[in-house]
């Protein structure tokens, strides 16, 4: 074993929340997301021999998370509920703004939503996003720019 149990424990303490939130943003179900965290660490421990140290542990864990979540989603078909409607009623006072943002995000494809999530919520750098999504850094720059431009125009149109 390359990794000691302590190392795995530390990784779990540091990154389990990130993995939980990322899988929650993909799976839209808390129970499935909690299962995902466990499954990701099991896969991580099993496949640690193939880790060549080209990226950080965090990026690698999130890549495993992504693969697991997509595998799970393909298994039962794509989830119809991308973002829950109820949360608008509970959490957000600025309903108009959030509804148009929700509409705008609903119209994005899965990869663009993921890109926005990884950048805005999880706060990953372009290089990390590129590693997780398995695309080039330039590609990340362009895609993120396009998505933001799209969202900005959509919100502008809603206001006018």
């Amino acid at each position: 074993m390359n990794l000691k149990a302590n190392n795995v424990k530390e990784l779990f303490e540091d990154y389990s929340d990130d993995i939980l939130n990322y899988s929650l943003s993909l799976l839209k179900n808390y129970d499935d997301a909690k299962d995902a965290v466990q499954e990701v660490f099991i896969r991580f421990i099993k496949s640690q021999d193939s880790f060549r140290g080209e990226c950080s542990y965090k990026t690698w864990l999130l890549t495993i998370t992504r693969n697991y979540c997509f595998g799970k989603m393909n298994g039962k078909g794509r989830q119809p509920e991308r973002i829950d409607d109820n949360f608008i009623k509970i959490y957000e006072p600025d309903i108009d703004g959030i509804i148009s943002l929700k509409d705008a995000l609903d119209k994005l494809n899965e990869e663009d939503t993921e890109l926005i999530y990884l950048r805005e919520y999880a706060g990953h750098s372009y290089r990390e996003i590129a590693e997780i999504l398995d695309i080039s850094v330039d590609n990340v720059k362009v895609k993120l720019f396009r998505v933001r431009e799209h969202l900005r125009k959509y919100l502008k149109r809603g206001k006018s």
């Binding site: 943003s25 839209k28 829950d84 969202l151 900005r152």
Partner: peptide, 27 residues
């Protein structure tokens, strides 16, 4: 615009994730 969009999307994801965590589960 970009600045406010960044903030809005961040809040949106944060709220959505909190909501999903507090939602009664399938169990």
């Amino acid at each position: 615009d970009y600045l406010s969009l960044k903030e809005k999307t961040r809040n949106y994801f944060a709220g959505n994730i909190t909501h999903l965590k507090n939602k009664p589960s399938g169990h």
